[in-house]
Design a protein around this nucleic acid. Structure first.
Lengths: 126, 126
DNA sequence: ATTGACATACGAAGGTCTTCGTAGTAACGT
DNA sequence: ACGTTACTACGAAGACCTTCGTATGTCAAT
């Protein structure tokens, strides 16, 4: 029922779509190409494959097809977080968090946000 | 200087070594095989490749070589967490945490631990 | 010395991922 | 009507991942 885990290149395209909203291949290509060299046909092929796999949905009404993620961003992110949690952290959210925080400096604001998030979470659960 | 990101199968073997400590191929194979069918030579091949890639180090003193992770567990986990953070969460630790928490029930104890972790983190930073 | 048990090494098949060139086609301007 | 431009579709190459069979070597015990 849910699509497979996106590969690296697929995730890159998802990220672009998350930020742009539903887009044509051209728009995605332009954004990707700003970061790294990539041929238009490469991006096109990816998006076609992703549609086949069920990662993207596409609207063929116009000549230039419009693609959008088949799953909401949050669902994909949840899937990826859980996947890594199981595969590398034996399910321990705490360890995952330590890994994420120690990997780079988190701003004080972000830390505050994180604490608030935890409080909410702890509140609604009991 | 640091090894490449481990693939799925490689991570599975790392996980076994994290739990067993330095081990022979046989020991790793037995553990892996308890979970899913896998030939001895498959596990052997992986571990050889991983040694080549710099993911494992091996001691050839005895006839049955003894392998261990080249990096401490924490370093690999940090790398993976950061990698996912960048690739899927645009660097937002908050979103990663939401993904991790919503993906499965976290126990109240774990939530408490997480809060403590954040407090320490916030304390040492300023 | 031969055999059996247990190692490593290695080649190769089959799958997936990534990338690109090119063919075909619809629309547009002159 | 014709050439140019903008799109999709597709095939294929090359890299990497996963898996396994098999060749080869070593040790110990009969």
């Amino acid at each position: 029922m849910h699509p497979p885990r996106p590969t690296d290149a697929e995730l890159e395209i998802l990220r672009v779509l998350w930020s742009l909203g539903p887009s044509t291949v051209r728009a995605v290509h332009e954004t990707v190409n700003r970061r790294r060299p990539a041929q238009y046909s490469t991006v096109l092929k990816f998006m076609q494959i992703m549609a086949e796999k069920g990662l993207l949905r596409r609207d063929e009404k116009n000549r230039a097809h419009v693609y959008e993620p088949a799953q909401p961003r949050e669902a994909t992110q949840r899937q990826l977080a859980r996947d890594l949690l199981d595969r590398a952290f034996s399910g321990s959210a705490k360890e995952l968090m330590m890994g994420a925080l120690s990997s780079r400096k988190a701003s004080p604001e972000e830390l505050a946000e994180l604490r608030k998030l935890l409080e909410e979470y702890q509140g609604e659960r009991e």
